[in-house]
């Protein structure tokens, strides 16, 4: 199946796109095309709900999960990381719901605990931390066709989730009481959304990297807000901006030989500042 993708790319005028060349680049490009819209969709709601700090913390929770998985001897600790970050997301939502602390404080507490625990567990017995570096920076170029297939399934699941639950999530984000008067349980929808973000972040962590993953969520949505007046435009522009910066950033990183994740984000931030300057024209 992946061969069809390689064939399609041969029409491009790039040397790496030619037959038999740079397979990793072609894989990465396909991965970016699947990953960026997925993150852009989830990101629209993260920005609506002022959850940028929260999604950042989820990455930290996932990191601890990886460390625990490593300790328990899994070669692929993603499974344990997903379980742990789901638990982590649920706990944050629960404590936020049950107490009157600001969510900033609660997330701060959880986030730092998670990172400390992750580093602590992975260095027990004087082990080196270096093997976890790949989770911090991430490497999209290392993605395999099998993993791309998995990403495709993930994208479909997120799309289905977005079709089914978006309206109710939007109401909860606009006003919890209003949502409540229409029989929507604010708490469970917050949990549901947190869990969706937790899974997406955790699964993609090894390709995008903990340090920059949050930008994939927040930047396209933040830029789209500058030019949108309704939810349809908001979604449209978030997806377009994320795809554009993903594709352009990846190709640029090939030619100027830089880390792909950060190049993508720099393109993405460029879009943010341009749209920010133009925002009054769209207001």
């Amino acid at each position: 199946m992946i061969d069809i993708w390689y064939k399609i790319l041969e029409v491009l005028p790039f040397e790496w796109a030619q037959e038999g060349q740079m397979i990793f680049m072609k894989n990465a490009l396909l991965a970016v095309i699947l990953l960026t819209p997925l993150f852009a969709l989830l990101g629209t709601m993260i920005v609506n709900n002022n959850m940028a700090f929260f999604s950042d913390a989820l990455g930290h929770g996932a990191f601890t999960g990886v460390a625990i998985g490593g300790l328990m001897g899994f070669i692929q600790p993603v499974g344990s990381a997903v379980v742990f970050s789901l638990l982590f997301a649920f706990l944050i939502a629960l404590i936020k719901h049950r107490s009157s602390y600001s969510s900033d404080t609660i997330i701060g507490v959880f986030s730092s605990t998670a990172v400390a625990l992750g580093i602590f567990l992975s260095t027990i017995g004087g082990k080196s931390f270096a093997k976890l570096n790949s989770y911090l920076v991430g490497d999209i170029l290392s993605i395999t066709p099998g993993e791309i297939g998995f990403l495709f399934i993930l994208l479909m699941v997120v799309l289905a989730f977005w079709l089914l639950f978006f309206n109710r999530l939007l109401l909860v984000s606009i006003n919890p009481s209003l949502a409540g008067s229409r029989g929507i349980s604010t708490f469970w929808y917050e949990v549901l959304f947190s869990c969706a973000v937790a899974v997406a972040v955790t699964v993609s962590m090894s390709w995008i990297g903990l340090l920059v993953i949050n930008s994939f969520l927040v930047l396209p949505a933040a830029s789209a807000r500058n030019v949108s007046r309704n939810q349809r435009q908001y979604h449209f522009w978030a997806v377009i901006f994320s795809l554009f910066s993903g594709i352009v950033g990846l190709i640029l990183s090939y030619y100027i030989e830089t880390a792909s994740g950060s190049t993508i984000i720099l393109v993405s931030s460029g879009i943010f500042f341009i749209t920010f300057a133009l925002r009054r024209k769209f207001a």
Binding site: N50, L163, L170, L171, I174, R225, Q231, Q233
Partner: peptide, 26 residues
């Protein structure tokens, strides 16, 4: 409604989110 004044949600979006099965962005 404590609204984020920059939120890209139109009046139509608000109604559709309440009454329609299709997501407001579709």
């Amino acid at each position: 409604l404590k609204l984020d004044t920059t939120s890209p949600t139109s009046v139509l979006d608000l109604f559709l989110a309440c009454r329609s099965h299709l997501p407001a962005w579709l």
